[in-house]
Design a protein around this nucleic acid. Structure first.
Lengths: 213, 213
DNA sequence: TCATTTGTTGGACCTTAGTCCAATATCGGC
DNA sequence: GCCGATATTGGACTAAGGTCCAACAAATGA
């Protein structure tokens, strides 16, 4: 079954293609927004960046000015993780392979069969939902981490490294007593019911970040 | 630079192709073993399954009896993670896209340029080295886990879930003292210097496995 | 079957962690 | 100078974790 709460963005310079694709996708219940150029898409406000609704992009490879691959590069640079389905009239195997290596969700040739496109969109949206779920959890945890004071962050780093309070106190040149207070605050602010959970939270967001070499 | 300690397996039914590819790859320092059929490759002993040396597979798509994709399916079923570079004389875009979705490392068309193949092999071997490193760590931890008694595994599961000894004792219908002993053995057998590290080890191997619904 | 692991359980004791109270010192801003 | 946030420390106490020693039952192997 199809989850109707999904956005599909279509970027193609040919109006006939945009219309045909939009009609097809709307007919099965997707919300569709079309764009004639990559620039137009980038400048648009496409709703929430912290995605609540799944979204994917159907993207023409060959377009004047900014092509599909250029757009993908822009999106990656902007951290906007959005599954992409490429569409092309003049593609070859090396191009499709490069696109897939670059993380594309699919790569189809025009004229595209309706079933093929629908299947590709479904897959892309599934990917989007997974990405959204991950990212939502990730930013929820980072938000808590941001509320820690510098000292608390230090303490947390050493706690998840497995050091005991006494050792942490020595490392930071203070007393065990103080560490206990910081530690308790860390647990509270991070909303960790146990040390095990704190470690998992830290792992998930890659804390602490590695030192620069 | 090229790491000479690498195996490249070549499976192609045309002897001329095998010879040409083998010569090319050997000329830059790779160890090469060729096979005329997928069956022949599967039946061979290709050295250590717990890979110490990186390896990849250059695989013809069209072959009598068992084709390249069939071979990949066999390998996946057998847990043998081996980066695959497909080679085909009669490929199309949908085929290449499917191959890439299926986890192929690359997909090239015959006749292949030397530089293209060499670049693809380098990339595939890089992937293989990463996979090897991950898998080596993974199986090292699993090995330790396998040395735990059933009871110790139960205790470990509840420990990494964040339960306290008292709660674990209640769950398992015994006393806190007993749990402490199990717990100490778990730490020793898992070679975890701290609870934090035990949690990370458990996370890495996906322990405990989720119950089936 | 006997002996030897292996897994399991308990007691006594010490160390470490967490909690509730309170207090001091510093800094940046208003 | 006062206020709020941060960092620090102490006392007294409870709870939890870890260690050493000891014991017993079940499984394993000769």
């Amino acid at each position: 079954m199809i989850d109707a709460d999904a956005n599909v963005f279509v970027v193609d310079d040919e109006e006939s293609v945009r219309k045909a694709i939009a009609r097809l996708l709307r007919s099965v219940g997707y919300r569709v927004v079309t764009f004639a150029t990559a620039r137009e898409f980038l400048d648009s406000e496409r709703g929430e960046p912290e995605g609540e609704t799944a979204a994917c992009l159907v993207l023409d490879v060959q377009m004047p000015e900014m092509g599909g691959f250029d757009l993908q590069r822009e999106l990656n640079a902007a951290h906007a993780e959005l599954p992409i389905i490429y569409l092309t009239g003049h593609g070859d195997i090396p191009m499709s392979v490069e696109a897939m290596k670059g993380g594309a969700s699919d790569f189809l040739t025009k004229p595209v069969q309706d079933v093929d496109l629908l299947k590709a969109v479904e897959q892309a949206l599934d990917r989007a939902r997974e990405l959204n779920a991950e990212q939502a959890e990730h930013s929820r945890v980072r938000e808590r981490l941001d509320r820690l004071t510098p000292r608390e962050r230090e303490v947390m780093g050493l706690v998840v490294a497995g050091l005991r309070n006494k050792q942490i106190a020595y490392e930071l040149g203070t007393t065990e007593k103080t560490i206990k207070v910081h530690r308790a605050r860390v647990m509270a602010k991070m909303q960790a019911p146990s040390l095990a959970e704190l470690v998992r939270l830290a792992e998930r967001i890659g804390f602490p970040e590695k030192a620069r070499p």
